[in-house]
Amino acid sequence: MIATLRYEFLMQIRRPSLWIVYGLVFALLLITMPFWSLDMGLPLEGGTARQDMTTAAMILITLLPVVYGCMLADRPGRDRLLHVDGVLDATPTSGTARLLGKWAGVCLATAVPFAIAYFGRAVLWAVTEGDPAALGWAVVTFLAMIVPGLLFLGALAFAGSLVMPSIMFRVVFVAYWFWGNLIPPNTMPTLAHTIFSATGDYVRWGLLHPLPSGMVAYGEATLDVLRPAHSPATAWLWIAVMIALAAVLLSVVRLHALRRES
């Protein structure tokens, strides 16, 4: 598993298109959102390192996962496309270990530009505000609010490659991202802001930046049954749901590979 993780990571991180596409979308974010200004143009009270890091995460989560999913799309089917699968399958390393290594390696590599943007923001805050706590909060926020969603999206890209070509997956993924994660829930039936949404709302509002008592993040909407109130418990539940969904999707991918062998 470690060997596959290492080489899949290297191959993905050296891919020029990864940096170009991330760079373009990040430039778009800079133009449209005052990401690098310290108050970020948002009327936040207090302006603590914790709040700033949470808001920075929220801003990045709006668009960068689109790049993340699209850049992952061609990785699962790449071994077959390049005809490397025969050589890999003939080694004594189990298919499950290779699948996990590949998933972890490419997800990790694809998240690197995301992390650089995010931690860059944290360093900027820490230096200009003289508050090194921002770095600690950045680590906590990244791990709790961003990483679980990315793990799930990575597994989704692997499962998606079973049912459609990578180009089509990219189109479907972009549509899914906006419909299933960003659209205000009172405009149409959507998975956005539910416990199945990958945007980390539950960690943001339930754990890192709790809403004032009695305040709700969104008005009434369909599928509200999937939107339990934000609390520390639902924040942890969301993390568990993301990891469980990733595990289920990867199991489906592995079972499919086993069926193909027979």
């Binding site: 470690i2 060997a3 596959t4 080489y7 290297l10 191959m11 050296r14 891919r15 071994d79 390049l82 005809h83 490397v84 699968d85 025969g86 050589v87 890999l88 003939a90 080694t91 004594p92 390393t93 290779r98």
Partner: peptide, 27 residues
């Protein structure tokens, strides 16, 4: 040791890196 009919490689790896990767998978 298996050499398939349509041997594929990772074009972005060097010959040495490719062999190193397969060697790791072979234990």
């Amino acid at each position: 040791g298996y050499l398939p009919q349509n041997l594929g490689v990772y074009p972005d790896l060097t010959a040495r890196a490719f062999l190193d990767y397969i060697a790791l998978l072979k234990g």
